[in-house]
Design a protein around this nucleic acid. Structure first.
Lengths: 136, 136
DNA sequence: ATGTATGCAAAACATTTGCACCTGG
DNA sequence: CCAGGTGCAAATGTTTTGCATACAT
């Protein structure tokens, strides 16, 4: 279920080298949540010649195409992850910076209910828990 | 219960004119969620001579002192509100940009539970619902 | 008086854009 | 071939910082 040239075509995007490499990097990385700069550096390390501007352009296109999701954690820069289809929220460890994913149906349901109660329809949401390791 | 010179002193900050004016603006504004630029413009409109850099510096100090809360909605810039003591989350209308506040104990409780389950202690969280007006 | 705060201009970042050149289909 | 994509450098928007001056206590 790795994303390929065909996924790009389906999204109306030519399957160019930079785009394929960026998808690869994002899928192969240990940390699935990467900034544009992170991806750019990975590309350089891998010996690829891609401009930072291209990384930004490609990520924005991927976001529009629904291939990646952009997050705005409290870090001053956007963080991206490939959309693996399964919705989840995030927990960020304040000590290590590690990002943990989780799912919770009750919270999702409550969000819909709250929006409804205020006369709105929920389109999207952003939930981030900032946590510290439990020290016993 | 308006914030005053004494609140600044308590926070270890001198009660200077720019700081008092900024608190005033934030408390008197219709929209309690303002960007640094919003506050700066309000000050100019009110005939005050305050630099934008000062607005940023003061807001950052206020945040550290717990007088204001900084939000990073998906807008590319930070938004601030005075801390009125009652915790709440936010709903942003994608049509009008309006910010609606809400409280929900169940969601708060669930967040604690989820952090616990993953071996963490919840320190803080950010929940934003992006909504559209219900059209019947 | 004296340690803080401020204003201004310059710097620092993250991100976007203009443009001439390259490339995938 | 040729619309679309890329690299580079320059522009943008937001926020921070250095420094000389001004202010609160």
């Amino acid at each position: 279920m790795t994303m390929e040239a065909q996924d790009l075509k389906k999204a109306g995007l030519k399957a160019t080298l930079p785009r394929l490499r960026i998808l690869e990097i994002m899928e192969d990385s240990n940390d699935k949540h990467m900034s544009a700069e992170d991806i750019y550096k990975s590309l350089l390390d891998a010996g690829e010649e891609v401009g930072l501007a291209t990384v930004y352009r490609v990520l924005t296109q991927f976001e529009s195409a629904g291939l990646v999701i952009r997050h705005n954690f409290d870090s001053g820069h956007s963080v991206f992850e490939t959309d693996r289809g399964t919705h989840h929220d995030h927990m960020v460890c304040l000590k290590t910076g590690k990002v943990i994913e989780f799912q919770n149906h009750e919270i999702e349901a409550l969000q819909n209910k709250i929006a409804e109660q205020h006369g709105f329809v929920l389109q999207d949401h952003s939930l981030v828990l900032y946590v510290m390791p439990k020290t016993e």
